[in-house]
């Protein structure tokens, strides 16, 4: 019994230590935002890698999600004779929840993994040590540009995803569910409020920060060899995904709780 309780205690302490370690890592990253030098070239490179190159995967995910959402809402709404709510529910669902969450998850899959693998490999091959000997702080050179780029790029990706998702719903609504084109667009615009959109963009920024921070953190903590880098990559994606869901709930409570 004592051994069982001790093992629970160790697990709890280990989990708390991990939370503390991630929090300190995130705080240190943010602190470098206010302390030069800044590496603009690395920031732009990260912005292209994280933002521009994630557009196809986020766009396609949003497009099909918007289409499927329109079909589901139509099927569900028809039970109560409420088919007309399809445009507004698709729009609100996309911009408030599905756009940010699915965008964040797709970026987590694509970006957190690649950041963790890249930094993990750099650590294993002593490139991080080499940076230090070349008077370059790895947190400034590797972490801050990626975290900043993701925090800026993901809201933009979410905005694009929202638009593409709504368009997916529109195409399905008009071509498959026989909605009038003008009516669909009018219902979409009329029921959508500015806060619906901006709250989703705030979520996107939070998710971008989470994704890049977890990628960098696990990369920096990577163990030795291919197995160490593999484990870091897996941990980055899993932790980023779980934190996105947790942050989404907390932000939704903050933004929309009655």
């Amino acid at each position: 019994m004592t051994r069982f309780l001790a093992s629970i205690g160790r697990a709890v302490l280990s989990a708390l230590a991990s939370v503390g370690s991630v929090a300190l890592f995130a705080l240190e990253t943010v602190s470098h935002l206010f302390r030069p030098p800044f590496y603009g070239r690395e920031f732009w490179h990260a912005l292209i890698q994280i933002g521009w190159l994630s557009l196809p995967v986020v766009g396609l995910t949003a497009f099909f999600t918007g289409g499927a959402l329109a079909l589901q809402i139509f099927a569900g709404g028809s039970r109560y004779g409420a088919e007309a709510v399809v445009p507004s529910i698709v729009a609100i669902g996309m911009v408030r929840e599905l756009g940010p969450v699915l965008g964040g998850l797709m970026v987590a899959a694509r970006v957190a993994s690649s950041i963790a693998a890249e930094i993990g490999t750099m650590k294993v091959t002593e490139q991080i040590d080499a940076l230090v000997t070349l008077s370059t702080n790895p947190m400034k050179y590797l972490t801050l540009p990626r975290v900043l780029a993701a925090t800026i790029a993901v809201p933009v990706l979410v905005a694009v995803g929202d638009s593409v998702g709504i368009m997916g719903g529109y195409l399905v609504g008009v071509n498959r569910l026989d909605f009038n084109s003008a009516t669909y667009l009018k219902n979409t615009v009329d029921f959508l409020e500015t806060w619906d959109i901006t709250s989703g963009l705030f979520k996107g920024a939070a998710f971008g920060f989470i994704v890049a921070t977890m990628g960098c953190y696990h990369g920096m903590q990577s163990g030795r060899g291919a197995q160490g880098v593999g484990a870091a990559t897996k941990s980055a994606v899993v932790s980023a995904s779980v934190l996105i869901f947790a942050a989404n709930y907390i932000l939704t409570e903050l933004f929309f709780a009655a």
Binding site: M122, T125, E126, Q127, D129, A130, T133
Partner: peptide, 11 residues
Amino acid sequence: FGMLFQGAALF
């Protein structure tokens, strides 16, 4: 300082 690493550690 200058340092040559075991695996060169090139970026």
